[in-house]
Design a protein around this nucleic acid. Structure first.
Lengths: 235, 235
DNA sequence: CAGTGGTCTAGACCACTTC
DNA sequence: AAGTGGTCTAGACCACTGG
């Protein structure tokens, strides 16, 4: 099988360090020629490496060798910036939009909202070492954080919430599935619709046990490795 | 874009319930004809739905509508059987192999073993409603569970460990990445090498804080939804 | 044994990125 | 303006599945 040989060859070059992280691969046509095959077969091989997290693509820009993933621990609350910095990476955050709206089905369910509740919604894109790796869509109960939209949303949100509204999260619930980028998220992350992704839904609860924020995160699958720890009481 | 229309059409039929879980899709050639396209484009659409978890394939047998995923909670120790039964599903477990060996690099690192340590290794495949969904490779410190191989390994392992060797796990550490099935795992799960998968590495610690078991699990990405909860002390 | 999925070939067009 | 990735066509062969 051709495409297995191709993936093996490229994988080996990556793991032996001949292809450094961030490097752009040669064009598909050149690679296809090099491996004496067609673009269809070559792309099959590349897609496999992508799902494996070894390479990723930027829409219409080509294929690149993945950086090592961020290791994200769910055992404690995480701020994207802190996680990246503590692992020697350069994080970036961009706010794409923010507005106030009536809760849609998704947010309403996650936050256990009564009908017609107001929420704030904003979207951010997070990058590591100059490349977008994650898109996040936030919903917050509007009454708990009045005037949210008048504040900058680029920074550490837990700090903002606490300093402005004395809001602190004491519990988070996560849901995690693998999926693919849809068109909008792909656009926001310079990715391709259909590329494999990890979706993390995070619901944050305040001291009174009320769900105040829900975040839908879409990660490039190559950019994240999750870690968590659980201690159990004996039965 | 053709393949987007195809995914949308099939997705809609699934979500509206016209295509029930477990149903086999028509052959690729028939589908391609129905959508007035070629097999290449059709397969692109199917692969997308697969990565999205809506359908899955069995090697050379065709494409099927996914069951709803098992919801696996990492906040407490989980036994595959219990999880499945509690969600109204019919679990199955098959032991593929078991033997004693010198620890390899992977297991040795995960268990913090000194060089040349003996471990037991066994492989199991777990199914839901008659279909394999997960492959697990277990490694245990040999000295803690002597004669492990003389016991049946199909059942609840925590029960076995406890009844035979008074071994109980009080802490687990998890690592989670998305990846693809390799040839061996694909074979064991009737899947296809290259299909998207979730890899969970679980290290189990006993009361004394010693890592006694490491499990490498490979899940069909459509078969699992992870859930976890974390409570935090205020800073 | 018919039909299927897995794999592969050899092209093509278009919109976009890059220079 | 050249080259690239995204998308698509119209075939083909083989090994395997399932009846």
């Amino acid at each position: 099988m051709q495409y297995i040989k191709i993936t093996d060859a490229i994988r080996e070059q990556i793991q032996s360090g001949q292809l450094a992280a961030g490097t752009k691969l040669p064009s598909e046509r050149k690679l296809a020629e090099a491996f004496k095959t067609t673009r269809v077969t070559l792309r099959e091989a590349l897609s496999l490496l992508e799902a494996d997290g070894l390479i990723f693509r930027e829409d219409r820009r080509g294929w690149f060798i993945s950086q090592r993933p961020l290791i994200v621990s769910l055992s404690k609350p995480y701020d994207f910036n802190d996680v990246a910095v503590s692992q020697g990476r350069k994080p970036s955050t961009e706010v794409l939009s923010s507005d106030s709206m009536m809760a849609n089905k998704e947010s309403s369910e996650a936050l256990s909202l009564p009908p017609f509740s107001d929420v704030f919604r904003f979207e951010r894109v997070h990058g590591v070492d100059g490349r977008p790796v994650m898109y996040a869509e936030h919903y917050l109960r509007a009454e708990r954080v009045p005037n949210l939209l008048q504040h900058g949303l680029e920074g550490d949100l837990s700090e903002l919430y606490h300093s402005q509204w004395q809001l602190r999260f004491t519990k988070s619930c996560y849901r995690l599935v693998s999926t693919t980028f849809d068109k909008d998220v792909a656009l926001a992350t310079r990715s391709t619709s259909g590329s494999p992704a990890m979706k993390i839904t995070k619901v944050n609860f305040d001291e009174s046990g009320v769900a105040q924020e829900v975040v839908f995160e879409y990660w490039r699958c190559s950019a994240i490795e999750l870690e968590m720890e659980a201690a159990f009481n004996l039965r």
